[in-house]
Design a protein around this nucleic acid. Structure first.
Length: 477
RNA sequence: GGCCCCAUCGUCUAGCCUGGUCUAGGACAACAGAUUUUCGAUCUGUGAACUGGGGUUCAAAUCCCCAUGGGGUCACCA
């Protein structure tokens, strides 16, 4: 039975990079009908916050990712919050200490930092020098009675660690180059390395799928698995996602948190699709695909080894594609909160003209990539748009005036408007003014909307209605 | 700096494992044309890449080595 986990630390918002790791874990589990587990690594007391965990769960659910075991749903291998498992780490640590696999280190953070600084300065690797490892008994006793704070470090044995990575193939590390690392901090909380291996063992994790930033940590973990007398799981290290500057994707690259995208009104299936495109592609080479359709073809070893650059433009394109074919009722539901916030429609849903709204959404959906853009696109239907000076000038030109007045005359003959009627009267205006194409449409578009871009003019006029059209044109005659 | 991973159009990628079918395919973006009597949307098309150097081979994007470049890691963060 395949068991995989996504193990974020609740120290910030879930962003594209992390979420992508969750997605591939989830996909892998689905493909092999395994179990997907959510484990929260909140051992960093200073930075972990409950609200981030809540948000993280919400964001994952929004994307459509579900797990069989986790802090919110329970499971037989719990608890799934590392902060609730401290006694486990502690017991094991005592065992390590007793068996001589670990030792107390009395170096202070300041000393360590200073030594690292010097090492870096002299071009040496900034690793721990294992100095507390071989204290004599009298030295140990002296420290013991001193009451000084200490951390507990793992005695890293010198060996050549070899493992097969599902994505990268055989990887080798010489651990004599690795310093003894901390497994228990002076405040009694476990370090990442320690907690991870213990939990992966106790939770029977069969495959560890994580970012490539953990590749160099893997030998440390394998050593710990050995110390725990456990067979290490299979590893798969995913390529990383970078920003446009080729630096690891992070907050400073902009709005990359999942909740941010949600707030902007991206459709979750679009975002999910995009994240899967980073490092993987389906056999049929389609860019747009539904998760359900590709699960059976997913092979983790076919994933790209090279890191990829996050491309907002492509996300926008893909997301736009989903909006174009989304169910109109669904878009309506999604759009209403944005329109309410903008003050375009009533906060009481019963007072909203839903059929008109649907017309509007259908008219503008081709021009947006996320639902929040509906506000800008539909503003022309709800507000008297301010016309810029350039446009005023443009509309007062001789040809513009002739078109506008001819158009107005035609409107006067009518009681109502439809896309067809609009096209008909434009035909008449064209004949009268001898202007066609862009020259004919642009003055009317600008007079009606105050913009050069927008939905098809006939649907704009149709939605506006005959009276609004008349008054808007009157202003420029 | 040591160690590790990686390297195809500007970007995401196919091809690489199992050399020949690759004058390297697709998508985003860019540009051009068509269509819409309109901008946009849509459709069609164009330009755009095997990092460099050595090998192996009849033949290398594909296998090997070196160089270069990028990234990661070496924390009482995860």
């Amino acid at each position: 039975m395949v068991r995989v986990r996504f193990a974020p630390s609740p120290t910030g918002l879930l962003h594209i990079g992390n979420a992508r790791v969750a997605v591939f874990n989830w996909l892998f589990a689905k493909r092999l009908q395994g179990t997907f587990i959510l484990r929260i690594e909140d051992t960093d007391v200073a930075r972990s916050e409950k609200k981030y965990m809540t948000q993280l769960i919400e964001d994952l659910h929004w994307l459509g990712i579900t797990w069989q075991e986790g802090p919110d749903v329970g499971g037989q291998y719990g608890p799934y919050l590392q902060s609730e498992r401290l006694h486990i780490y502690n017991d094991l640590c005592q065992k390590f200490l007793k068996e001589g696999m670990a030792y107390k280190c009395y170096c202070t953070p300041e000393e360590l930092e200073e030594r690292r600084r010097i090492a870096r300065h002299t071009g040496k690797p900034p690793r721990y020098d294992n100095r507390c490892r071989n204290f004599t008994d009298t030295q140990k006793e002296a420290f013991e009675t001193s009451g000084l704070n200490y951390t507990i470090r793992f005695k890293v044995p010198d060996e050549l660690v070899v493992f097969d990575d599902l994505i990268r193939g055989t990887c080798q590390f010489d651990t004599s180059l690795t310093g003894d690392f901390v497994i228990m901090r002076s405040d009694g909380t476990p370090s990442f390395h320690f907690a991870v291996t213990i939990d992966d063992t106790l939770m029977n994790i069969t495959h560890v799928i994580r970012g490539e930033d953990h590749l160099s940590n893997t030998p440390c973990h394998i050593l710990l698995f050995h110390a725990l007398k456990q067979k290490p799981p299979q590893f798969a290290h995913l390529s990383l996602t970078m920003g446009a500057d080729r630096a690891l994707l992070s907050k400073r690259h902009g709005a990359f948190s999942i909740s941010e995208y949600r707030k902007l009104g991206y459709l979750p299936e679009g975002l999910l699709n995009y994240m899967m495109m980073l490092g993987w592609s389906p056999k049929d080479k389609k860019e747009k695909f539904k998760v359900g359709d590709i699960i059976d073809t997913f092979e983790i070893n076919s994933m790209s080894k090279a890191s990829s650059v996050f491309d907002q433009q492509k996300l926008d394109w893909l997301s736009g594609q989903y909006i174009r074919e989304a169910d109109l009722e669904r878009l309506l539901t999604l759009a209403i909160p944005y329109l309410q916030e903008a003050g375009f429609v009533s906060t009481e849903e019963s007072k909203i003209d839903l059929s008109k709204l649907k017309l509007i959404i259908d008219a503008v959906r081709g021009n947006i990539s996320c639902m929040s853009q509906i506000v800008h696109e539909s503003e022309i239907f709800f507000k008297d748009v301010v016309i810029s000076e350039n446009h005023v000038e443009f509309l007062s030109s001789e040809t513009s005036q002739s078109i506008l007045s001819a158009f107005y005359m035609e409107l006067q003959k009518l009681n109502n408007l439809s896309p067809e009627i609009f096209k008909d009267i434009l035909k008449t205006v064209q004949k009268e003014t001898k202007v066609n194409g862009k020259g004919l449409y642009m003055p009317i578009r600008i007079a009606l909307t105050g913009r050069e871009h927008g939905p098809e003019l006939y649907s704009v006029a149709n939605i506006l209605g005959i009276n609004a059209c008349k008054t808007k044109i009157e202003r420029f005659l």
